[in-house]
Write a protein that binds this DNA or RNA. Sequence first.
DNA 1: ACCTACCAGTTGACATGTCAATGATGCTAA
DNA 2: TTAGCATCATTGACATGTCAACTGGTAGGT
Lengths: 163, 163
Amino acid sequence: MTEATPDRRGGRQLPTADELRIWRDFIETTAALGSRLESRLQSDSSLSTGDYAVLLALSEAQGQAMRSSELASHIGWERSRLSHHLGRMERRGLIRRQECATVPRGAEVLLTAAGAEAFKGATFPHLRAIRELFVDALTPDQVVAAGEIATALSAHLDALRAE
Amino acid sequence: MTEATPDRRGGRQLPTADELRIWRDFIETTAALGSRLESRLQSDSSLSTGDYAVLLALSEAQGQAMRSSELASHIGWERSRLSHHLGRMERRGLIRRQECATVPRGAEVLLTAAGAEAFKGATFPHLRAIRELFVDALTPDQVVAAGEIATALSAHLDALRAE
DNA sequence: ACCTACCAGTTGACATGTCAATGATGCTAA
DNA sequence: TTAGCATCATTGACATGTCAACTGGTAGGT
């Protein structure tokens, strides 16, 4: 890892001032974008983006039901996070849980009528907000670039995790 | 707003399937990136990124002290969020609060020796993590593009807020 | 002086997230 | 058989974030 040319890529430990400024802009702006989407969804439909992710997965599932751990890996959450979240959603009547007949200790998560209704009402305003806050902010080239950046970052994170 | 060509930009309400896929990749990846940085910082230094932001601002401030609301606007936090966070940091001995002599009702936030020490120890591993997780994942062109995307998104969010 | 409006900061209630520990159950190897 | 061991899901403790209400003090208009 140590090299004779410490300011070349691969031989440098720390980001340059420019890279650091870009990092800060990037991470703060994406966080702000996420929370704007969150509050738009909240005021349009009284759902959080977490609720929406769960309802979306269940809506698309066979029989509008999934095993808990299947759901967790589908939306990329830890099981404990999902379990807490499902408890809150169950209290609000958006989903139901019941023992799974086929899998020992498995819990089935079911979409309720109220949950399906809430999801249906939330979808259009949510997609519109994505367009207004994200797509409309960028040129078509920038949208493509954003996709490539996300792909590169994601692959890099996976590669580091695998080490 | 209504136009005769609903699939042209400006006449379309909803994102295309491609745009939506890119949106999901983008927002999920940036969130994952943030939480990886968070956990790296946590294990390297027992600080959160919130702690780090506060300590960074105080370290760079005159006399290593700032008024609470000045600090809040400097790092872009709501006052209540900062107040809660300062309470937690004060319990851990990283900062101190005292009445401000010059401003009525103003609270001064002071960096303690332990806080300065913690910040000093955290900086190098944190910057190294930014390089490893973000800069190293992208080509130089992509880093520049990420900066431009952040700038465009940020400007767009500001413009929408101003409406 | 008095009423009002604002300002800085705190607080409480609650939603959300992580981590570690705990049940409950099946699998496997001595 | 049974003693470990992995798996599925939940739980509790706690950190973090938002929102709205509150506290105390200052300033302006009448």
